[in-house]
Write a protein that binds this DNA or RNA. Structure first.
Lengths: 111, 111
DNA sequence: CACACTATATCCACTCTGGATATACTCGAA
DNA sequence: TTCGAGTATATCCAGAGTGGATATAGTGTG
């Protein structure tokens, strides 16, 4: 659809919900959370990060968390209040779709 | 993603889960189920129907349900066993995404 | 020495989508 | 009675989102 949060953006926001991360760490975290089912490609990741920055759903940290033992190439990101709202709205939309499937008998009660 | 069911395809399958319908009726049914939030455009609808037919997720009925009082232009479709499986798998994937959002504290318990 | 891993970034091709357009018939309001 | 809205299907175009390849570059391992 036109107005909803793209899948990659949603997963990135979920990954940043409880911890500031850099791009590569997001790829790994999303893969871990989805048990390897979703491996964000670099093309999708960095393009989506740029879009999220422009839309104000995430912000880049000016100071890296641990300057001593850290790869200088890394760029860290933090979710914004607006990002939290966007992710929550998208989750509600997805929950509605699941509800629709359940109401149609397409889903076993718990799965 | 590459392998998952597009949103329009999912909604069409849900709409056909309990009743055979023709294209235009699907548009109205999806709009009703989503409380007007999702109005499938004709471009999306008829293209997606063609794709679903090719993939064997739906089938066109050879005989229209009620030949007497019916618009002859209508083409009726029925979901296949394969279509049911595809919709169920997609619903599970969506439910997993919602679960991920909840686990991250992005969602209020029930919403 | 080659390969894999870390880390970011850009490019191309493909798919999915909305919206416009086309065709054509029916019905009610002005 | 004519105009617009609704019904019904279909095609086209432009734009967004995605994966995969490619590039660059440093580090670590067999």
């Amino acid at each position: 659809m036109h107005s909803d949060l793209p899948a990659a953006a949603f997963h990135i926001l979920v990954s940043l919900a409880n911890e500031d991360r850099h791009g590569y760490a997001i790829i790994q975290d999303v893969a871990a959370r989805t048990k390897g089912k979703l491996k964000l490609s670099p093309g999708t990741l960095y393009r989506t990060i740029q879009r999220l920055l422009e839309q104000g759903l995430i912000a880049e940290l000016r100071h890296r968390p641990d300057p001593e033992f850290d790869d200088e190439r890394r760029r860290y990101y933090r979710i914004t209040a607006q990002g939290v709202r966007a992710a929550r709205d998208e989750a509600k939309r997805l929950a509605q779709m699941v509800k629709l499937a359940r109401a149609s008998g397409l889903m076993p009660k718990e799965a």
